[in-house]
Amino acid sequence: MAIMVEVLDRNSQRKSLHRLDTNHVTVGRGYEADVQLDDPYIDATHISIDQRDDDTLVINDNDSLNGTLVNGEHSAQASVTERDIITLGRSRMRVFSSQRHVAPAQKLNPMEARIEWMNSVWVAALLALIYAGLNLYSDYLTQFSDVRWGSLLGQTGAQLLVLCVWPLFFGLLAKLNSKEARLTSQFSLLWMTLIITFAISTLEIVLRFNTGQQPWIDTLMLGVVAIICWSFYWLTLFIAFHQPQRRRHMITSVMTFLTLLPLSYFTFHYSDNFSQRASYDSTLLPPAFLLRSPQPVNQLMQDADALFNSVDSLRDAGSDK
């Protein structure tokens, strides 16, 4: 049997752990103490801890200047377990017996091995470069006067910088939880997600170009966005924290829901405010992207018939009000 003294930081994360194979331990600033703490508000031998025969632990304050707090209450002598936080001066600690049972080991998620490649700086840099290139190209396509590469590069750079907030934020959160920041993996994940999004939105444009304005494309795209968001959030949390599976699933689902809520609102409840301009999708692609053969003019005329009916019902619906 041994006494375990776990020194904690302000976030109750472990700073150091001491195992002492005896049934009487002293904690203080003096070098004669068994657990020595560098805290000016602590006496030389501030407290002593005794292990009784029944394995209970009792702490005794040795008439210290600033006293001892157990769970925030002053106490000269107290029986403590691993659930009690003991405060001496500005230091916090827990004291428990080495007999304490630990929780069974968690199964390592196979995902850990699968995302190992993301941890390479070269991969992160390459992905960032690809994304910047795609971004630059799509900006370039919409420049119809002289192309100002300087300002295009500036815009892309600024966009990349803003995007860096996400991995840095989660790296910081991980750090605060005394976990590895794993910034490289976070950056790789971010750039990879953006590249996938870019590819999917290109596919969407091709799909819309070949089908006209079909409402099912909106639903499909919302589904795809949901999958991308969920995977991205899940992996971000997976890299940053050691969470139980259930908890990670729950946080991911809530985050995805919060992202999709405004998105689906704008997709399905688009404003039909009156405008002198017609609203339609004007996106054109080069003839090579035309995957279906064009329709004859009489197909357009047949569909125009239905269009007349739809504005008729729009008019009749308005006059009922």
């Binding site: 070949n210 301009r277 339609y280 999708d281 035309l290 329709q295 197909q299 357009l300 269009l307 729009l314």
Partner: peptide, 12 residues
């Protein structure tokens, strides 16, 4: 009413 539109790719 507001405009309602149809989009087609046609061959004349």
């Amino acid at each position: 009413t507001n405009y309602r539109c149809n989009t087609h790719t046609v061959n004349n």
